[in-house]
């Protein structure tokens, strides 16, 4: 064990974060201000998620970190190592074995259970920020439940592009009250926001924590004649053949060849281990 306090943060900081998490759970979708600390990594690398994870972890937890679905990217590896060193927790890449999952910009494909906690890294927690830069105004808009501007934005999508072109960080209304930014997850993941696990959101630079308890109503904003649509690339995964998972497009060469692979690396790995084969799987295995 290192010389750091358990899970890096001092106890008073953790208590402050824990109080914010409890208020966030009591008012689903509402952004609770908190005194975000400097972390030993730059803002934008998940400092909000790291602080929420630090306040949530116990020594018995099994911790998983994904970055755009992948366990093996720099961000995910460094955060996983950070908590291996400072909290002495078990880590895993398998979604089913994890009790706390910190994520950047994806929800795992596997259905999460009641015993799991999903911690999101959030860059801009305020869904209205790009429409109204003043915090005093957005706070007033939330307090008055005045979300007309957001519908205007979605309407302008339709008038310009013929469809709601917002494809990630798609705004949702939580428990019929607060409009919330689900962090930049693809809108393919939006239907999964109603889940059995506890969802916690941490924005370090913006100093906000918010939460969605299990079984909470989460509705993606839309119009009757332009209903919300969870979209993905119309293609099966080239490694595991999955047709139900969110895909990344990978450029293979400068001749226009490309492949589609599951963004959730653990989902893809477990499907291949179970014998599923995609179009390019043999080349990948060789």
């Amino acid at each position: 064990m290192s010389e750091y306090n358990f899970a890096y943060l001092d106890e008073q900081t953790k208590r402050m974060i824990r109080r914010a998490i409890l208020k966030g759970l009591a008012v689903p979708g509402y952004q609770v201000p908190f005194a975000s600390r400097e972390m030993p990594m730059p803002y934008g690398w998940g400092t909000g998620g790291v602080q929420v994870s630090a306040a949530t972890l116990t020594p018995e937890d099994t911790f998983k970190v994904i970055d755009q679905g992948a366990d093996d990217t720099t961000n995910a590896v460094s955060i996983r190592k950070f908590f291996e060193n400072t909290a002495d927790v078990e880590t895993t890449e398998e979604t089913e074995k994890a009790t706390v999952i910190q994520t950047r910009h994806r929800i795992p494909e596997a259905k999460l259970t009641e015993d799991q906690i999903l911690v999101y890294q959030v860059p801009i927690p305020e869904p209205l920020r790009f429409l109204e830069p003043r915090e005093t105004e957005t706070r007033k808009m939330h307090s008055l439940e005045e979300y007309g501007l957001m519908h205007v934005k979605l309407y302008e999508d339709i008038s310009q592009h013929g469809a709601i072109s917002t494809s990630y960080a798609y705004p949702v209304k939580v428990s019929d009250r607060y409009v919330m930014d689900p962090s930049p997850i693809p809108k393919f993941d939006n239907p999964k926001l109603e889940m059995d696990a506890i969802q916690l959101f941490g924005a370090g630079r913006e100093q906000r924590i918010y939460a969605v308890p299990p079984h909470t109503k989460v509705v993606s904003l839309d119009f009757e004649d332009y209903p919300f649509e969870a979209t993905k690339a119309d293609h099966p995964c080239d490694l595991c053949g999955a047709e139900d998972s969110y895909l990344d497009e990978v450029i293979m060469d400068d001749a226009g060849n490309r492949m589609f692979v599951c963004s959730d690396t653990d989902y893809c790995r477990s499907r291949r281990a179970a014998g599923h084969v995609g179009r390019l799987a043999e080349e990948g295995a060789a």
Binding site: F6, A7, K14, R15, R18, L22, L57, P59
Partner: peptide
């Protein structure tokens, strides 16, 4: 053991507040 005891207690408190 304040960090560990508090972590366990908070997880219970968070779980009941969320459920």
């Amino acid at each position: 053991n304040a960090p560990i005891d508090a972590a366990h207690a908070f997880r219970a408190a968070m779980t009941v507040m969320a459920r």
